[in-house]
């Protein structure tokens, strides 16, 4: 503060602005100056792009063709009558639900374990968060190898309990669970940390009161911890569904772009294929709008379901 005082006393006050300008106007001008870099970038790369995306979705716009004829709703009609799109939607929802269930349960389990009065709390938190730091590239290469049918360590471990080698990445019915498994390993650290914060926010006296009333550990968990964690669970599942619905890197790398066949095509892989492999930009824009619409519906639905329950 001393530095500011010294500096400012020698300078004339409000030298930039004419004296007649009142404080309110000056504050507003200053505010818009502070905002202007953000607003410029936001306008160009978000507002313009979003509007343009919706606009483009009504044109047959292909990257390598000079003409872009207006086709009305044709792109959407094509999209909604494409069975590959719908199977991609199903794969994506399947993947997102399994992954969010897995990360939420494992994250909560880990959070409860590391908030108990034990030695090495901090050590375990740091350790269990490590996978989350890997890039999808690195994690993808690791799991592509671990899940290998012939030489994979996962199949090796399973062989000890008498399970014959499983073709994880080659079986259309197993590929999504396999990608989910890898993703749960990779991302449960985030819900874990959020749950730790949630658990620390529960007042200790509630536990003490329950113990005095003779409640056991399981009762305390299901009657006190879980209900009080509901806002945290809402946050973790909503953000989880939103981020896992946009899954791209895992199928792109682990199953070589959505294989076997199209068994692990997700909606973003579908978008990538249409816009950057087939160069159908107008159709791709319609895909992007459809993805946004689905995500809006899912989010609204989650908020409705979870907020409707009775408050204690």
């Amino acid at each position: 503060m001393a530095r500011i005082i010294g500096q400012r006393l020698t300078e004339p006050r409000h030298s930039i602005f004419p004296f007649s300008m009142n404080l309110k106007t000056r504050e507003a001008i200053a505010a818009y100056l502070f905002l202007s870099p953000f607003l410029i970038f936001f306008a160009i790369f978000f507002v313009r792009a979003t509007i343009s995306s919706v606009g483009m979705s009504f044109y047959d716009w292909r990257l390598l063709r000079p003409t872009t004829p207006y086709v009305g709703l044709d792109n959407y009609i094509d999209l909604f009558s494409d069975p590959i799109w719908w199977s991609s939607v199903i794969h994506t929802i399947y993947f997102a639900v399994v992954t969010v269930l897995g990360t939420t349960i494992v994250g909560l389990l880990a959070a409860v374990a590391v908030t108990r009065p034990i030695h090495g709390q901090g050590f375990f938190r740091v350790l269990l968060y490590i996978p989350q730091l890997m890039s999808v590239g690195a994690m993808g290469l690791v799991w592509n190898w671990l899940l290998s049918t012939q030489f994979g360590v996962i199949n090796y471990l399973l062989s000890f309990i008498g399970i014959r080698p499983i073709n994880w990445l080659g079986d259309p019915n197993l590929v999504i669970p396999a990608l989910s498994l890898a993703t749960i390993w990779w991302t449960f650290g985030f819900p874990m940390l959020i749950f730790i914060a949630g658990l620390q926010g529960i007042p200790e006296h509630l536990y003490e009161a329950a113990r005095i009333d003779g409640a056991n550990g399981r009762q305390i968990f299901f009657r006190i911890t879980l209900p009080l964690l509901r806002p945290t669970i809402l946050f973790v599942t909503v953000t989880g569904i939103i981020s896992h619905f946009q899954v791209f890197g895992q199928p792109y790398i682990i199953t070589g772009g959505g294989g076997p066949g199209r068994s692990s095509w997700t909606v973003v892989i579908y978008l990538y294929q249409q816009a950057w492999v087939a160069y159908r930009m107008g159709f791709g824009a319609a895909v992007a709008v459809a993805i946004a619409a689905i995500m809006a519906v899912i989010t609204a639905f989650q908020f409705l379901v979870i907020s409707r329950r009775v408050e204690y």
Binding site: A49, T50, S53, A288, A292, M295
Partner: peptide
């Protein structure tokens, strides 16, 4: 302005990909 920003956080990034790529 702030309310508008709040709403836009719900819009997934894929929507802006194609126009920004062309830009």
């Amino acid at each position: 302005l702030f309310a508008i920003l709040l709403v836009t956080i719900m819009i997934p990034g894929q929507v802006t990909l194609i126009p920004n790529f062309l830009l």
